[in-house]
């Protein structure tokens, strides 16, 4: 007889936050609509009831002020969890993120630390257009000084949040809206998972092989993990055995896991919902090419958003965003096969 408790991504995040708040009085939460509303994407549901207004603080729409305040509070001995409602809104507050949070440890010669979690919603697929649908993994991963994680499922959402809160570095925790298990937004089947009730931490920089295969490596993160798995199922019917790697964190990046897989398969497809140019897809391919270009039996392929603002209209948005079919087609190209 077993308890097979299944949590949505959002419930898993909340559980991790609540468990850390119970044991560590320095942990507190602030952001827009994190109080009675429980977070626009349900990342703080129920926390106000348990921990009260001092530790779960609704803020004005003043990201420069409250993210800057998060930096200051973190340097003063607290462990703030600050929510930036949509990652797209970084435009109004980036200075506090990349010039303060990301640099203060270094510029203090390691004498100051900024143990802040900045959690933020990413992703499109529901016609919210380009000011509310971006993924922007690379925008943050590009800038030194922040750790950047992006879970693909509830189990990882809890374990990575626990690690993020306990880490002494600023951690950007990027959760995809479409993986939260929100009643009002469709989510892929595998996003909600069984989640242990006891606290646990998932170390950063450890990718996970979510499907083993010998013919081709598909590297994915966040939402594209689900697209990659669906593509792998379809490819299996074509007789192609794909390995799928969920990176789970961008910084630190588990390059070794990618290399180990490519050594086995010799073929590589990288899928990311972020923009194509100057992004994660290029970084992964460069990592392989720099190490040993001879590992690849065919040209690697990437599946990402073309370099356009994410359009509103459904047919155009579907054209722009990665999906299983695009990954499948890319895999077929690495096998030098025409797409059926």
């Amino acid at each position: 007889m077993s308890r097979n408790r299944v949590l949505t991504g959002s419930r898993a995040m909340v559980e991790a936050i609540a468990q850390e708040m119970r044991v560590d009085p320095t942990v507190f939460v602030m952001g827009e609509d994190v109080g009675p509303y429980g977070g626009i994407f349900s990342s703080t549901t129920g926390l106000l009831d348990e921990f009260g207004e001092e530790r779960v603080r609704d803020t004005p729409i003043s990201e420069t002020a409250f993210i800057g305040a998060g930096v200051g509070a973190a340097m003063a001995g607290m462990r703030p969890i600050v929510e930036l409602m949509f990652v797209d809104f970084f435009g109004v507050c980036m200075d506090a993120i990349y010039n303060l949070a990301a640099k203060n440890t270094y510029f203090s010669g390691g004498n100051s630390k900024v143990p802040m979690v900045l959690m933020t919603a990413t992703g499109g697929g529901y016609s919210d257009a380009g000011q509310h649908s971006q993924t922007l993994h690379a925008t943050f991963a590009h800038l030194p000084g922040m750790k950047v994680v992006a879970p693909s499922n509830a189990y990882d959402a809890k374990g990575l949040m626990t690690s993020a809160i306990r880490d002494d570095a600023p951690v950007l925790y990027m959760f995809h809206k479409g993986l939260q298990g929100l009643a009002w937004m469709a989510a892929p089947e595998g996003a909600s998972t069984e989640v242990p009730e006891d606290p646990y931490a998932i170390p950063f920089g450890e990718a996970r092989v979510v499907r083993e295969g010998g013919d081709v490596t598909i590297v994915a993160i966040s939402m594209t993990v689900h697209h990659a798995l669906a593509a792998a199922e379809a490819l299996a019917k074509d007789g192609v055995d794909a390995e799928v790697i969920d990176l789970r964190s961008l910084v630190p990046l588990d390059r070794e896991a990618v290399l180990a897989s490519v050594r086995k398969t010799g073929r590589l497809v990288v899928a990311d919902e972020d923009y194509r140019s100057f992004g994660l897809t290029a970084e992964i391919i460069a990592s392989v090419a720099e190490t040993d270009p001879g590992l690849l039996k065919s040209a690697p392929r990437r599946v990402a958003c073309p370099d356009i603002p994410i359009p509103y209209s459904r047919p155009m948005e579907r054209f722009a965003l990665p999906d299983a079919e695009k990954i499948r087609a890319a895999v077929q190209q690495t096998l030098n096969r025409a797409v059926a």
Binding site: R3, N4, R5, V6, L7, G181, A183
Partner: peptide
């Protein structure tokens, strides 16, 4: 039904 929070057959 938006979500089930236990698998079919689980102890609750």
């Amino acid at each position: 039904v938006a979500n089930w929070l236990y698998r079919d057959g689980s102890e609750v």
